[in-house]
Design a protein around this nucleic acid. Structure first.
Length: 499
RNA sequence: GUCCCCUUCGUCUAGAGGCCUAGGACUCCAGGUUUUCAUCCUGGCAACAGGGGUUCGACUCCCCUAGGGGACGCCA
């Protein structure tokens, strides 16, 4: 039997470093077994999935030299590899489950479900579908379906007993069925949910081992039940630990850079990043710390994975990166600098900003230092030249930061609109409003145009700089709460942002 | 709240009952090399969450407690 693993990212945002982490381990495990590694795009959430995001994910994995044997771009014998192109397959399978009595049509409204869950929560129970539509007669279901009434398909769950299964790392796990919800398998728009699609695809694509984040452990009963309903053999399950923020919570954009592109733009080498991710939860048998994915595969053993959630440590990544950088020949080093930023394509984005404001070519370096490198370290004093007081500036940075965190398309108009609306809300002139942003982004009061700068730096670096500026200004716990409240208030008076 | 997972220095980790006076790496500190800085070298600080068992012997096995994390969506 050929070992087959997969990474199945959902193209709904930045190429996440957690995706790269899971991809690496799946790649390494497959290679260690002489197996195959598959890339599948899970774009069943039509509203949030974008092809740009898919492209970014593919690019980031390629940048990291994680290659796949089958996928949407290279094809393969088990395609298509994009779930949106497999809708009919899931529908046929869902239909099969309805016919075999393992799934049922549900007509419940969102309002009813909300009320039900609220009541269950209030009673101290785990919210869970109450089986309302289970009691519908076949005739009634037929009639309502015939009338074109909106509905979903849910799977049935045993009323009693435990789901007992084996995790390749954690051993036996038991989850009471009483905790498992009657999961929606097909949404009202006819698209499958993750749970149906993942099981059907993993089976059809002959995946033998699933290595994924431990956030999925609680979904295992649903998946195993589906395998059983279909009469299929389930793959080996292996739940890896989750990458953590410094405060130990699951790695998140609000607290830590999560985009692979962030590391790329600050000048981390791809081999340093994969090496670093390889050290998260894994160690080489001889404790060597510098190793490639290939070397990792040569010595790979599932059992060596450590299950404690590893905290992402920038200091160690930087050190590792330095090791790689210093190991380069001068020629290779020059090539890397070019690949990174000093190439014609990248520079051409800067020229329109620079040319107008330049008297000597040598002005260039001091003008772009904060765009290619970092700013000079900030101090609270840097903000004092602003018209608004420090508290207001903190508020500006906080709210802009939140808006930027939620922004999905990093475009000039969207950025500007956010700032304009917020400035209006706070009753500030746009130039006073923008001042703290100039400082946060460029570290100076005089810089290249703000929005061009943010566009050039991209969402990841921009967000981090705003967060760092907030840190420099120092936000107390009390203040943080006030800011949070103020932001919610702003949101409530604000028409939904058009992004 | 309910269920599930996890728990060795601040951080990443080694450790599969005696090799542990708990090792390595990052960070930090001290010293050396270096015209400066960085690199590099040397040294130092620093951990088995707590309590019960099992055993001649427990970081390693079992139980309880505590702490941390996750899931609880027509998101994945």
């Amino acid at each position: 039997m050929t070992v087959r693993t997969r990474i199945a990212p959902s193209p709904t945002g930045d190429p996440h470093v957690g995706t790269a982490y899971m991809a690496l381990f799946n790649w390494v495990f497959a290679r260690s077994q002489g197996g195959e590694f598959i890339l599948r795009i899970e774009d069943t959430d039509v509203a949030r999935s974008t092809s740009e995001s898919e492209q970014l994910i593919l690019d980031s994995l390629k940048w990291l030299s994680i290659d796949w044997d089958e996928g949407p771009d290279v094809g393969g014998p088990h395609g298509p590899y994009r779930q949106s192109a497999r809708k009919h397959i899931y529908q046929a399978h869902a239909q099969q489950l309805v016919e075999s009595g393992h799934a049922f049509h549900c007509f419940c409204s969102a309002e009813r479900l909300d009320e039900m869950r609220a009541a269950q929560r209030a009673a101290g129970d785990n919210p869970r579908y109450d089986g309302h539509c289970l009691s519908l007669s076949a005739d009634e279901v037929h009639t309502r379906l015939g009338a074109g009434e909106e509905h979903v398909i849910r799977m049935k769950i045993p009323e009693t007993g435990d789901c007992v299964f084996e995790d390749a790392l954690r051993g036996q796990i038991e989850i009471p069925y009483a905790q498992v919800d009657m999961q929606v398998l097909v949404k009202h728009d006819g698209f499958p949910t993750y749970h149906l699609a993942v099981v059907v695809d993993d089976h059809l694509m002959e995946i033998t081992h699933i290595l994924r984040g431990e956030e999925w452990i609680n979904s295992v009963p649903k998946h195993l039940l589906l395998y059983e309903y279909f009469g299929w053999e389930a793959p080996v399950l292996c739940h890896l630990p989750l990458l953590r923020n410094p405060d130990k919570s699951k790695l998140s954009k609000r607290k830590h850079p999560t985009s692979v592109n962030y590391y790329r733009t600050i000048g981390i080498l791809p081999e340093a990043l994969t090496n670093y991710l390889g050290m998260m939860g894994w160690s080489m048998p001889d404790e060597r710390e510098i190793f490639s994915p290939r070397e990792m595969a040569d010595d790979f053993e599932l059992a060596r994975i450590h299950l404690g959630g590893p905290v992402f440590d920038m200091a160690k990544l930087s050190w590792l990166n330095g090791q790689y950088l210093r190991g380069l020949t001068p020629d290779a080093f020059m090539d890397r600098i070019q690949d990174w930023a000093l190439n014609r394509e990248n520079l051409s984005k800067l020229v329109p900003l620079l040319q107008e404001r330049t008297e000597k070519l040598s002005d260039l370096v001091s003008q772009v230092d904060y765009l290619l490198g970092d700013r000079v370290p900030l101090t609270p004093a840097d903000f004092e030249a602003g018209k608004a007081d420090l508290e207001t500036q903190t508020l500006v940075l906080d709210h802009v930061g939140r808006e930027f965190d939620a922004l999905r398309h990093w475009e000039r108009d969207a950025l500007f609109e956010i700032c304009q609306q917020l400035a209006g809300h706070l009753g500030l002139k746009i130039r006073d409003f923008l001042f703290p942003l100039f400082i946060a982004i460029s570290g100076r009061t005089v810089s290249l145009p703000l929005f061009d700068s943010m566009l050039f730096l991209g969402p990841d670096v921009t967000r981090i700089r705003i967060r760092e500026a907030l840190n420099v200004l120092g936000v107390s716990k009390k203040q943080a709460k006030r800011l949070e409240r103020a932001y919610r208030e702003y949101q409530s008076v604000q028409p939904a942002a058009s992004d």
